[in-house]
């Protein structure tokens, strides 16, 4: 089925409910769906579990959701940054749960969810604090840790263009988590600069096929 084309970011996120698990794309500001996060802020949903590489920067986007204590738990690889003050405050106050995951395991757990994999053995993290309590196995003399998929209710991602069938192309390093997050959520909500007619993206360059995309909103681009 072709994706829903929402008229606004607010309409795109309107189905997000309290207690949802949400994958949010972006590495730093590149690929961060800032307008969708702002709309999530406005829609009032709370008690959220958020999956993102970081835990918000400065006074925008995810950082504000955390500031308003709308995020119950964050699953991320790199929460501590020079400008992550809202996360730092919430964490030190014991008001947000942190699941710290090595970045490659985070990406692979998301990929696994989208690909129907029930778990995988990875060498990353073996013998470290982040593998404590997890099943391990030695395969051909090398240690591995069992990691499980991260499924989500929603994914909020940013791409450059979508066509009317939801096929996506991204821009440079803003691609980062977008393609895997689109596959791992029950509903993938995508903000793009522009929605173009089906057939106007060369099938050879489609990065995320439309089968993964549920909602698209065109917000125009700066460039």
């Amino acid at each position: 089925m072709a994706p829903r084309i929402a008229a606004s970011a607010a309409e795109a996120v309107a189905e997000i409910r309290n207690g949802s698990t949400i994958l949010i794309g972006g590495f730093g500001n590149a690929g961060q769906p800032m307008e969708l996060i702002d709309a999530l802020m406005d829609c009032g949903a709370t008690d959220l579990t958020v999956v993102n590489n970081n835990a918000g920067q400065a006074d925008a986007g995810l950082a504000l959701l955390i500031k308003e204590r709308r995020v119950r738990k964050i699953i991320c690889s790199f929460p501590r940054q020079s400008d992550s003050w809202h996360f730092d405050t919430a964490y030190r106050a014991g008001e947000i749960e942190l699941e710290l995951v090595p970045q490659g395991n985070l990406a692979e757990r998301i990929r696994a969810a989208g690909a129907g994999i029930g778990g995988f053995f990875t060498p990353t993290g073996y013998g470290t604090l982040l593998a404590e309590g997890k099943e391990t196995r030695v395969i051909d003399g090398k240690g591995y840790v069992l990691e499980t998929p991260i499924h989500a209710d929603f994914a909020l991602i940013k791409a450059l263009h979508a066509d009317t069938l939801g096929n996506l192309v991204y821009r440079k390093t803003a691609r980062n988590f977008g393609p895997i997050m689109a596959t791992a959520a029950k509903q993938a909500i995508v903000q793009v600069d522009e929605v173009v007619p089906a057939g106007s993206i060369d099938p050879e360059v489609v990065v995320t096929p439309g089968i993964y995309v549920d909602t698209v909103v065109a917000l125009g681009g700066k460039k």
Binding site: S77, F78, P79, R80, Q81, F87, D88, Y91, R92, L100, V101, P102, Q103, G104, N105, P123, T124, G125, Y126, T128, L130
Partner: peptide, 14 residues
């Protein structure tokens, strides 16, 4: 200290 790991563990062993 607030822990942050990023890609360090993947890079180290990869």
């Amino acid at each position: 200290a607030i822990p942050a790991v990023g890609g360090a563990m993947d890079l180290a062993i990869g």
